[in-house]
Amino acid sequence: MAGNESSLLTVRDVDVRFAKARTLADIVLRRPAAAVHAVASASLELRPRETLGLVGESGSGKTTLGRAILQLHPVAGGEIRYRGRSVHDPMPDWQRRLRREMQMVFQDPYSSLNPRLTVTQTLGEVLRFHRIVPDAGVAAEVARLLDVVGLPRSMADRLPRAMSGGQRQRVGLARALAVRPTLLVLDEPVAALDVSIQAQILNLLSDLRAEFGLAMLFVAHDLSVVRHVSDRVAVMYRGRLVELGTREEIFLRPAHPYTRMLLAAVPQIVARKRVRPVQAATDMNAAVVGGCPFAPRCPQAVDRCREQVPATAVLSETHSAACHFAAT
């Protein structure tokens, strides 16, 4: 079954598990190693030229989901389709095409570049490997990429250690853009940068999106960052998608208590009213076996929340939330 015609990327019921090391007790009792559920039946869709913000606190599985889409983590269940075709289809031509169409920008600009390669070497390798331009045109293409990400051409022969965090992040972006992708997964691309640099990179991203018609999956823990760049926003909590909606819906009419908590944590210049502080995840392991995973931290939780997993309530064509009280 091909996915929705209008969708570029379809993620349906995806599970990602991390196996813990098999302990002696596991071997004696002949049971498999315990597993951590990093992502549990996550579903989302990304349309061409659209930016979807994926937010959640650390440990919510948002980075893992982003990496699973690029096949950096194996998927335990569900399916990920790109243009209607499974990304796990092993046909070499398809895999090569996927590598050119989907790219990733990483969080840590200090470890995302090979410390021994200059900017020209890093970008040139990508251009030559994927034959983006003829070999004779590599130098010119490197210069063009530097212009695109706003780096002076004099940076071309620098090693990463001679560059600032923001400059390195621009090189990481240029490397991803070198293959001329359609879809960019951005894993917290500004979280490691100074606030003033963050704004520059976010502006650059909006420009690039407009210029190249890129679709983006923007992973972040900070709602205020996502607000600038996203058309739609997905909120994850402990491996599950708890709310999905357009930017306006999420920021103006949040339906899930966790989304409201995250919004309350966004610093505001003028406080509109006193907000309840975010409650820390005191005891994650207390998470209810048969109930809503957010119940232990939820200010609205009632007995029903601890007993019954909430179904996803559809609030509008674009807005849904996994909460018993979402519809009210």
Partner: peptide
């Protein structure tokens, strides 16, 4: 585990490279 190795995998470079 460093991101530049992940980036190389994302770019489809073969293991030998």
């Amino acid at each position: 585990g460093k991101d530049y190795i992940l980036a190389a995998r994302t770019l489809g470079f073969p293991t030998a490279r």
